[in-house]
Structures are given as C-alpha cells and as structure tokens.
Computed example of a mutant assay.
Amino acid sequence: MEDPDKFNIKSFKLLGGFVIEIRYQDGKVQTIDFGQIRHEGWWKELEDPEYFKKVKINEIENLEWPHGQDFKPEHLYYWEKYRQDYM
C-alpha cells in the first residue's frame, strides 16, 4: 500500500489562467490546467478567474477553494491516469 502522505501538497504556484504547478511532499511536481476540466454544478465557480485564484492548501494539505471545492489528492498526483475522468 502506498504512503498516503505522499499525496499531500507541500506548495503550489499559480502559473496564469487556470494552471497550477503542484509540489508534493515526496518531491514530485505536477502541472495541471484546471481550465480544461468540465465545470458543472458546484464546480462552475472555478471558471471565475478571481475565484480560482483563492485556492489554498487546507488543513489536510490538499488544494481547496473557499466553498470547499477540492479534488481527490491521488487523482491530482496521478493526473495522467485520472484526467479523462474530469474532462
């Protein structure tokens, strides 16, 4: 079984638009364009550039927006495997 702490986010950087560079506890760096994700229902707020910029690392070290939108950390870590689930 994998160490669940490896999915914890150490830091992130907004690169412009809806692109975030994520650095994980184990040193992995992942760059994700959240603008390509389908935004339905509760996720629709993420289309607003000003709202999108309000992303923070929450108490369990995951990316989260003010109204609680977040993604499964293992899905972001293994984005190549899971990205189609969000398109």
Rank of each mutant, 00 (worst) to 15 (best):
P49S: 00
Y82L: 03
V19W: 12
E45T: 09
G16F: 14
D70V: 04
D26N: 02
K28F: 00
L15T: 09
I57D: 08
I37P: 00
E59G: 15
E47L: 13
E80T: 07
N8M: 15
I60N: 11
N8E: 15
I20P: 00
G35R: 11
P49Q: 05
T31C: 11
P73W: 10
Q25P: 14
S11W: 00
K28L: 08
E61G: 08
F7N: 04
E21M: 05
D48I: 06
Q25N: 15
G17Y: 12
Y78V: 08
E61M: 12
H39V: 01
W43T: 07
K56L: 10
K54Y: 07
D26H: 03
E80P: 02
E64N: 00
I22G: 04
F34W: 07
K28H: 08
G41S: 02
K6L: 06
F34A: 03
H67F: 11
R38K: 07
I57K: 00
T31K: 15
I32F: 09
G27C: 04
D33E: 09
K53V: 09
P66C: 02
Q69T: 05
E40P: 12
E40R: 10
Q25G: 11
K28S: 07
I9L: 07
V29E: 12
E59L: 15
I32N: 02
L46W: 01
L63I: 01
W65D: 00
I60F: 13
F34L: 04
T31I: 15
K72S: 13
W79P: 00
N62G: 12
L76Y: 03
I20W: 05
G68M: 03
I9D: 01
K6C: 03
Q30R: 13
Y51N: 01
K81E: 08
I32A: 06
I60W: 13
I32K: 00
Q30G: 10
K44W: 10
K10W: 01
E47C: 14
L15Y: 13
F18P: 00
D85C: 07
I32E: 02
E80V: 02
E21R: 05
D85Q: 10
F18W: 11
E45M: 07
